Amino acid sequence: MDATKPAVDDLGTETGPDVVEYEYDAETPASIAAVHAICAVTDVDPLEAPTELGFVLHEHVDPSAIDMLLGDGTGDGDVVVSFEVSNGGRYGVEIVDDGRIEVRTLESS
Rank of each mutant, 00 (worst) to 15 (best):
17 P>W: 03
101 I>E: 00
65 A>D: 14
43 D>P: 00
21 E>V: 01
78 D>K: 11
8 V>R: 03
39 C>Y: 05
10 D>W: 05
105 T>R: 13
6 P>F: 03
88 G>Q: 14
17 P>Q: 06
36 H>K: 03
6 P>H: 04
35 V>D: 01
54 G>H: 04
86 S>H: 14
39 C>S: 11
35 V>Y: 04
73 G>S: 03
105 T>W: 07
66 I>D: 07
61 V>I: 15
62 D>L: 07
30 A>Q: 01
102 E>L: 07
82 S>M: 10
43 D>V: 02
101 I>R: 00
24 Y>Q: 00
74 T>C: 03
107 E>N: 12
43 D>I: 02
69 L>R: 12
25 D>P: 00
40 A>Q: 13
73 G>M: 01
69 L>D: 15
98 D>L: 06
86 S>P: 03
103 V>N: 14
93 V>K: 02
108 S>M: 10
82 S>W: 06
79 V>H: 15
56 V>C: 06
4 T>C: 07
34 A>N: 06
81 V>H: 13
18 D>R: 09
96 V>L: 05
50 P>D: 05
13 T>K: 12
105 T>M: 13
77 G>W: 12
106 L>F: 10
77 G>M: 13
29 P>T: 06
108 S>G: 06
56 V>Q: 09
17 P>A: 07
35 V>F: 03
2 D>F: 10
52 E>Q: 13
57 L>N: 09
101 I>W: 01
49 A>N: 06
104 R>M: 12
9 D>A: 09
40 A>E: 14
5 K>E: 14
98 D>F: 10
62 D>V: 04
101 I>N: 00
51 T>H: 15
69 L>T: 09
100 R>Q: 10
10 D>G: 04
101 I>L: 12
18 D>L: 05
45 D>T: 04
29 P>G: 07
53 L>F: 08
95 I>K: 00
63 P>A: 07
27 E>H: 05
76 D>A: 13
98 D>T: 03
65 A>Y: 09
34 A>M: 08
31 S>M: 05
77 G>E: 13
81 V>Q: 13
95 I>V: 15
53 L>N: 04
71 G>K: 02
36 H>P: 00
69 L>K: 12
85 V>M: 11
39 C>M: 05
75 G>I: 02
74 T>M: 08
9 D>I: 08
28 T>Q: 02
88 G>M: 11
66 I>H: 02
102 E>M: 09
10 D>C: 07
83 F>N: 09
44 V>R: 11
96 V>N: 09
50 P>H: 08
52 E>I: 04
19 V>M: 11
14 E>W: 08
41 V>Y: 04
89 G>K: 14
15 T>I: 10
40 A>M: 03
33 A>H: 03
20 V>H: 08
